[in-house]
């Protein structure tokens, strides 16, 4: 992964020096292992802070809506798709952006690594050639990175940025083989009551901290429906019904827009696999409209458009 770092820094430095952009949004190395911190850089001399590894799991498109000026931004495949969604939804203009694309071989799920080492603490991580070495007190494991990817990365079909002005490193081969919706089918195989039980158990630990929502680039509403107070739409306690309403409505607001970047899941402090809510909607949008979010800045999102050749009679 680190072969990208030099190239990211070089491009960032160049575009800041040439004043092609006012600022760069990227990642810097985290203060703890398996973490990175989104960072905003205005000074070319600071570009040495920019960093890249398999733990750049946040989606930097989250920092774009309504931002002014010329912006340089680092984007892996999913980030670039969310940038495209933002452009289509008028949150940022294409002309404002200089996108430094980073072909992505998947982000590593730090929780999967942690569960491997049990209750020991991971104190150091090293990456090389598809291997990842985990060290802690009295432990050292060298693992295949591919075995510890985030769930969304395992099923990702768009590892290369779809939209970019410069690319760091070489494009990677897109995988043809993943079965993108095996997880959805597993849930569909359940009886109704089993499904309800599954989703109720899924969110049992939810603290309503809204990290999933806030990590999501799609959630840029000035006031979220759960934060509306006049009138208030949703109860604020941890009553299971209110919590479920939050999750279901959040997912529906993402229908046809979600790129399955997985930032929601990675941000959750209590390990809830919130993507289960959006996955089925993503598949429906693909099946019904042949659409995957953020692949083009020319097309309107499937749920806010109409075509005369719609296959449903009632709308023709």
């Amino acid at each position: 992964m680190n072969r990208y770092v030099d190239e990211i820094r070089a491009v960032a430095r160049k575009i800041l020096e040439e004043k092609a952009v006012d600022l760069i949004i990227g990642f810097k190395k985290g203060s703890i292992p398996m973490m990175t911190e989104p960072v905003l850089i205005r000074d070319a001399a600071e570009t040495g802070q920019l960093y890249w590894d398999s733990f750049c799991f946040m989606n930097l498109a989250t920092y774009l809506p309504k931002r002014e000026g010329k912006i340089g931004i680092i984007a892996k495949g999913c980030d670039s798709r969310n940038i495209a969604v933002h452009i289509v939804e008028n949150q940022v203009k294409r002309e404002q952006l200089y996108i430094i694309g980073v072909p992505c071989e998947g982000m590593v799920d730090r929780r999967k690594l942690c569960s491997l080492v049990g209750d020991k603490e991971v104190r150091e991580i090293a990456e090389s050639d598809g291997d990842i070495t985990v060290r802690g007190e009295g432990l050292e494991h060298t693992l295949k990175k591919a075995d510890y990817l985030q769930d969304n990365c395992i099923r990702c079909m768009h590892r290369n940025p779809v939209l970019y002005d410069a690319i760091a490193g070489d494009l990677v081969e897109e995988r043809k083989d993943p079965d993108p919706y095996d997880d959805v089918r597993e849930i569909e195989a359940m009886a109704w009551d089993e499904r309800w039980e599954f989703f109720s158990t899924l969110i049992k630990d939810c603290t309503r901290c809204y990290a999933c929502r806030n990590a999501c680039p799609l959630c840029y509403c000035p006031t979220c429906f759960v934060d509306e107070s006049g009138p208030q739409w949703v109860g604020k306690s941890i009553d299971p019904t209110d919590t479920m309403i939050f999750h279901i409505l959040r997912a529906y607001h993402c229908a046809g827009r979600c790129t399955d970047c997985g930032a929601c899941e990675q941000a959750c402090p209590v390990d809830i696999k919130v993507r289960f809510f959006t996955r089925r909607l993503n598949r429906d949008v693909f099946d019904l409209y042949g659409c995957e979010a953020g692949l083009s800045i020319e097309e309107r999102p499937p749920l806010d458009t109409y075509r005369p050749d719609d296959y449903d009679e009632f709308i023709r």
């Binding site: 603290t207 109860g235 941000a267």
Partner: peptide, 27 residues
Amino acid sequence: DVAFACINCGTCTFLCPTCWCFDIQDE
């Protein structure tokens, strides 16, 4: 600089043993 990355979620406050703030609601 400190605030740039913040997504304003409640993870820090809800996990924190010393954060005590509350809201009162009628249901």
